[in-house]
Amino acid sequence: MDEHLKIELGKQGIVVTTLQELYNWGRRNSIWPMQFGLACCAIEMIATTMARFDMARFGAEVFRPSPRQADLMIISGTVTKKMAPQVVRLYNQMAEPRYVIAMGACAISGGPFKQGYNVLKGIDRYIPVDVHIPGCPPRPEALLEAFMALQKKIDAQPLTGAGRPRFLDSEARGEFPIPVPGEHDLEPASNRGVWPVEIETGTKGPRD
């Protein structure tokens, strides 16, 4: 539609939009994160919700403790091998549409604790991550930036055709297998299709 005509109609009090725009506008401005802190980054996440940085400006101040009521999971901190099954389980319990922000170096790759025997080297081995934020810990501004990146991503999602959100795609996977502690590592070492490169269990890499 012609932009000038749209503005002209707007002056008359008539709003013209597409269903997709309206739908995505509503979705991106009411992301409810899950109240789920893992480690150090959680404190910066809390600082982001407080008065100075005020995540409410993005419609995301309603932190819900229950995964059933949350749209966004912020993996805020180190995921250990003891905690990883719980993280995947919580992700499975969230209702679509759901998004994941991996906050900080630990959630992305294990970060400074990567050499540890008990630290998962990146949560994106098990669940799909939408936005990664580097930093140790990332500043609250960085979390807000990630929020804006997520909002842009939601805004750009068409409702039909390729690239539509997972919840509108009947073929898309809803549940992800929960890893269990194996002999040497969690099994499976990664969920098929989530991590770009398949990791075989029992590989003897120095960092795995």
């Binding site: 480690a39 901190g77 003891k82 905690m83 604790f113 025997y117 008990n118």
Partner: peptide, 21 residues
């Protein structure tokens, strides 16, 4: 143990100063 990050073991494998962070 849900946040056991091997702090002590890592510190024994790095220099004294590198444990400061």
């Amino acid at each position: 143990g849900y946040l056991h990050r091997n702090h002590e073991k890592i510190a024994e494998q790095t220099s004294y100063l590198a444990s400061m962070p």
